[in-house]
Each structure stands twice: as C-alpha cells, then as structure tokens.
Computed example of a mutant assay.
Amino acid sequence: MAGRSAPTGRRIRVATELRKLRERSGLTATEAARLHGIGQGQLSNIEAARFGVSGERLRAMAQNYECSDHAFVEALVDMVKDRKRGWWSEYQELLPMSLLDLAELEHHAHRLRGAITAHIPGLLQNADHAREIFRQHVPEIPPSDVEHRVSFRMKRQGVLRGAEPTPYQALIHEAALHTEVGGSGTARSQLQHLLDMSEQDHITIQVIPFKAGAIPGSGQSIYYAYGPVPELDTVHLDQSHGLAYLDAEIQLHNYRTLFSRIEDAALSPEDTRDLIHHIGQHL
C-alpha cells in the first residue's frame, strides 16, 4: 500500500474551520486573500488542506475574519503546532489512510463516546475477537494484513491506558453480547474482557437491552470524539462503504442529542455488568 501523500484528517479539519470562518465573515476568497496579503491560489490551497499554515498566520487569519472566540482559535493553533509523527505512521504502508486518521482522532480526543449495535467496539475488543472480525472481512484480507490490523487495533487501545487515559463511554446493544464471534470460548473471553475494562474508573460501559425496543441510530456504528472546544468535536461513522467524519454544527448537535437518548435507553453500568456476567455463564 502506498505511503501517505494526502493531508491528515487533522490538517483537513483545520482547513475546514478556516474556510468556515471566512464564509461567516462574508468575505470571498479573493477578498480574504487580499486581506491576508497572499494570492488567491495560496488561500485556496490552505482551505483545501494542500498547504499547511503556521500558528501565527492562523491567528492573523482569524483576526481578519473578526473571530473573537479566543479559546477556539488557540485550539486550532495547537492543532497546527503539533506536528509530531504518531505511532500510527508506522502503518502508513500497510493500512488504509482512513484508519490512520481514526487513530489520530482518538489520540487527540479529550473524551470518547461510542454507540454500536452489531458488535463489540474496537477499543474494547481483545486480540482473538478482533482477529476473527477481520477474518470475516469482505473482500477477504490476506492473513498477514489481518495481523497488521489486529496489532493496529490493540495499539489504538493505548488511549485507554497510561497516566492520563481518555474517558470513554461505550453504549453496546445486547445483541452484540450474544454473538459468539470465534466460538463460545472466544466469546466468553471477550465478555470477561468487557467486565475487566468496565471496572476502570475512566471507562463506562452500558448495554442497550432488547426490551428497550426501537432506539435512534440503530443499524450504524457511531463514534463521538470531543475536542478541546465543542466546535472541534467530531462524529465518526463506520459504514459498509467506508468511514465518514462529520463536523458541521447542526450535525454535532444532533448526534449529541442522539447519544443522550440512547443513554436513557441503556442499563446502568452496574446492571450492565450483571447482564454481561449472566450471558457469559450461559455460553
């Protein structure tokens, strides 16, 4: 697989926010470029994430756009200043770029929430469960690539470990707990892994029981990454045709509302552990 030549998801987000600021200011690209003292082509490349931008230039652009939200601007500046290569760059020759962007998103998130109906969330899978999931991929993944994906998924879980782990809430449908991925032995091991993870203070696992009936968002995997300020939150959707990232203000609002409604339908963390334990005993 070819190395990365496209911009990272993080740079694309900065470019998107700069374009939004310009549009809210009412300036055309030509007017804005003149105001910044650059060519229109250079501005277009910045807004398309083909060119990066320094923190100083970003502050100047925000000022020209009359953005008075200091916390938001400084959060963007922090994003462009942090240019260290993350551990996920080791996989750029091996895995799709969308997966690298997901690891980058998780690494920088201040808080994570996931709602899923079909399977156990990736951040809570053990290696045997993850391996079996990848073996069922269509089109088929070569065995060596399966192992690359398993190791990548296990490294992604590093955000839940360490001195300052990222707070994580997982809302999982009961159906996923009954699915014997890899057979009963692997399924029991995975359920015990969920129980072990649920004992950690920064991890909240809640099951959506069958009796909850219809819930919003069913049929899709939804991931919500909280940024340093609400405007930089991101919704990640895992769909059959690929990954999608949403960041429009109305989309963020709608998905925050959706998560609240799903959480209302879910069991408490304590009742969730009891149910997982019960299911594991009967596999």
Results as ranks from 00 to 15, higher is better:
3 G>P: 09
6 A>S: 14
7 P>I: 04
16 T>F: 14
17 E>L: 12
17 E>T: 05
19 R>Q: 10
21 L>H: 00
21 L>D: 05
21 L>T: 03
23 E>N: 02
26 G>A: 12
29 A>Q: 14
30 T>G: 04
31 E>Q: 14
34 R>A: 14
36 H>E: 12
36 H>M: 13
39 G>D: 07
39 G>K: 05
39 G>T: 13
42 Q>Y: 13
44 S>I: 10
47 E>T: 07
48 A>L: 11
49 A>N: 00
53 V>E: 01
53 V>F: 02
54 S>I: 01
56 E>W: 07
57 R>C: 00
58 L>E: 01
59 R>F: 04
59 R>G: 02
59 R>Q: 11
62 A>L: 08
66 E>D: 13
68 S>Q: 14
68 S>R: 15
70 H>I: 14
74 E>Y: 08
77 V>D: 05
79 M>P: 03
80 V>F: 12
82 D>R: 09
82 D>I: 00
87 W>C: 09
88 W>I: 04
89 S>E: 12
90 E>G: 05
90 E>F: 07
94 L>P: 02
94 L>S: 13
95 L>Y: 05
103 A>H: 03
108 H>S: 12
110 H>N: 15
112 L>W: 08
113 R>L: 11
114 G>V: 11
122 G>V: 05
123 L>A: 11
124 L>Q: 03
126 N>P: 10
127 A>T: 11
127 A>F: 08
133 I>N: 06
134 F>C: 10
134 F>A: 03
136 Q>D: 10
138 V>Q: 12
141 I>C: 09
143 P>H: 06
144 S>D: 15
146 V>N: 07
147 E>Y: 06
147 E>G: 09
148 H>G: 06
153 R>T: 04
157 Q>G: 14
161 R>Q: 15
167 P>S: 07
170 A>Q: 09
170 A>L: 09
171 L>C: 00
171 L>I: 06
172 I>G: 00
174 E>D: 10
176 A>V: 03
178 H>D: 04
180 E>M: 15
183 G>M: 09
187 A>N: 07
188 R>C: 03
191 L>K: 05
197 M>S: 10
197 M>I: 06
199 E>L: 01
201 D>A: 11
202 H>L: 08
204 T>Q: 06
204 T>A: 05
209 P>D: 01
209 P>I: 06
210 F>P: 02
210 F>D: 07
212 A>Y: 00
215 I>E: 03
215 I>K: 02
217 G>E: 09
217 G>Q: 08
217 G>H: 10
218 S>V: 11
219 G>Y: 07
220 Q>N: 12
223 Y>R: 04
226 Y>G: 10
227 G>Q: 04
230 P>F: 08
231 E>W: 04
234 T>N: 04
235 V>D: 03
235 V>L: 09
235 V>N: 03
235 V>P: 05
238 D>N: 13
238 D>W: 04
239 Q>A: 14
239 Q>P: 01
242 G>Q: 08
243 L>K: 09
243 L>A: 13
247 D>Q: 14
248 A>D: 15
252 L>S: 02
260 S>F: 01
260 S>D: 15
261 R>D: 12
265 A>C: 12
268 S>L: 03
268 S>A: 02
269 P>N: 01
270 E>R: 08
274 D>A: 09
276 I>E: 00
277 H>C: 13
282 H>L: 12
